[in-house]
């Protein structure tokens, strides 16, 4: 019994932290650029595919984990600079249509290039097998994902709270025109944040491309969860996204234990419940200053 709970909790935290990698990017992009990025899930999916290509051609998971997010970052630069930048001043509907269009295009391109069937990134040999403590065992790879994503989220958190870059990001989210007038090229900050979000999504795609499957529909699946997280956490709230991702990870894993077919419903019930009590999300109001 205890073993099941520990196992489920670990699984939930691990999944929550990988979701946090996706949701923090999404929420930072919304908070700063005011763009609801529907292409974010497609970038995650692209990360998984690039990871699969690198891992299967060069035979190294580690190279895949390094290179695939960078490739996704390049795609991110192209999307931001060439298409989003001219539309910042427009109605948000333009951003939604544009990024939704990109999501469909990327998915179409992936099907065209690599077909519609499911792939999987091969688990690295060094992380195969299980870790055994007494009678308790847990897959090594899942443990690795848990540690890496938690560390990464921790580093990003520190950077956003403490570094000059974090100050710049928070100030730009608050009043980008003022930041520009202080002599800082805000458009570069915007590109940086968009690309950063893309790289994180790509990274998560490679990580989950091993334990879950790689398929063209994975982007649309994850974007729903990521949006639920961003809404519950409070639109644009960085901390809110991380806490909520963890919560959603745990709700998913424990929910699956109770009634595996109902986990998605749990998410939406949770979202509806939170929004009824706090319409701005858990952290929405406190960071709105």
């Amino acid at each position: 019994m205890v073993e099941t709970i520990v196992r489920t909790a670990l699984l939930g935290i691990q999944y929550g932290m990988t979701l946090a990698l996706i949701a923090t990017g999404l929420t930072l992009i919304f908070g700063m650029l005011d763009v609801i990025n529907f292409a974010h899930g497609a970038l995650y999916m692209l990360g998984a595919y690039f990871g699969w290509v690198v891992a299967s051609t060069l035979g190294s998971f580690w190279l895949a984990l390094l290179l695939a997010p960078l490739f996704v970052g390049v795609v991110g630069v192209a999307i931001e600079v060439l298409s989003l930048r001219p539309l910042y001043d427009r109605n948000p509907l333009y951003h939604i249509l544009l990024t939704f269009g990109f999501a469909i295009m990327i998915q179409g391109a992936v099907v065209e290039l690599w077909g519609g069937q499911t792939k999987q990134i091969a688990e690295p040999a060094s992380l195969a097998g299980t870790l055994t403590i007494g009678s308790f065992d847990y897959p090594m790879y899942r443990l690795f994902v848990l540690v890496v994503s938690t560390l990464l989220i921790g580093v990003i958190w520190l950077a956003v709270e403490r570094s000059d870059l974090g100050i710049l990001m928070r100030a730009s989210a608050h009043d980008s025109e003022m930041v520009d007038a202080l002599g800082i090229d805000v458009s570069k900050v915007f590109t940086g944040v968009f690309v950063f979000g893309a790289v994180l999504a790509g990274f998560a795609g490679v990580l989950l491309g091993v334990s879950r499957s790689v398929n063209p529909g994975m982007g649309f699946g994850i974007i729903i969860e990521a949006f639920v997280i961003v809404v519950i956490g409070g639109l644009g709230s960085f901390r809110g996204a991380i806490y909520t991702a963890l919560l959603i990870g745990l709700v998913s894993s424990f929910g699956a234990l109770v009634a595996s077919t109902l986990t998605e419903i749990f998410l939406f019930v949770l979202m509806a419940g939170v929004l009824m009590v706090r319409p701005n999300g858990l952290f929405g109001a406190t960071e709105a200053t």
């Binding site: 000059d164 100050i167 710049l168 100030a171 930041v179 202080l182 002599g183 800082i184």
Partner: peptide, 8 residues
């Protein structure tokens, strides 16, 4: 606030 302004 001041660090941000000094940044540029």
């Amino acid at each position: 606030n001041l660090r941000l302004a000094a940044h540029s």
